[in-house]
Amino acid sequence: MITRARAVQLPSWAGKPVEAELGGWPVVTHFEAATGACGVGLTDLSHRPKAIAQAQGIDTHFALTPGRAKWDGQSLIACPKPAHAIIFDLNGAIEPQWPDSTYTDMTEGWVLLGIWGPEALGMMQRLITVDLEPRTFNEPLYVATGSHGIRVQVINLRTQSPGFIIACARSHGQNLFEACLRAGTQLNLKITGTDDFYGWLANDCK
């Protein structure tokens, strides 16, 4: 079997990971020791399919304007600029299935992290300088900006309890992950598997 390598190395204090194989990806579903409550959960979702779609009218096709994001079934679709859309497929088929060549598959190129839980905003405020909760706008929000010198994309899911996803180039994945760990020092941060993330999402998002 062809194995895949994760871009992010987990520190040993995270616990002993339990992995499932998903399309060749070693996906940490949970850690052996029970995790319990945490201030902020940090979950590696880098195995999820991702793409950039570029075509005239693609933003209007998805009914998005720059800076906005929305759910389209299992996928988050965001608009960074006119004629561009970003797709983060959080729960569909693991093999990317993009309709045509206007899509460029970025699954391999971007690391994707979930940051969620009561202290998630405090964590993001240590990573990002841009306002992630503008007063005048309550929908999911897409922001392209820098974090500690790394170019990142962030979606504020605008879930009931705070939740974000953050993406950056694979070659900076470990750097971003470590920046998250530093930012979470005082926030009771836990590294979790995907079970906790999807559990939280199912509870909080619908």
């Binding site: 720059p66 600029k81 006119p82 841009v130 900006t145």
Partner: peptide, 10 residues
């Protein structure tokens, strides 16, 4: 025009 007002160092 896409991202709004941002710091020049971006």
């Amino acid at each position: 025009p896409n991202c709004g007002r941002r710091n020049p160092y971006e």
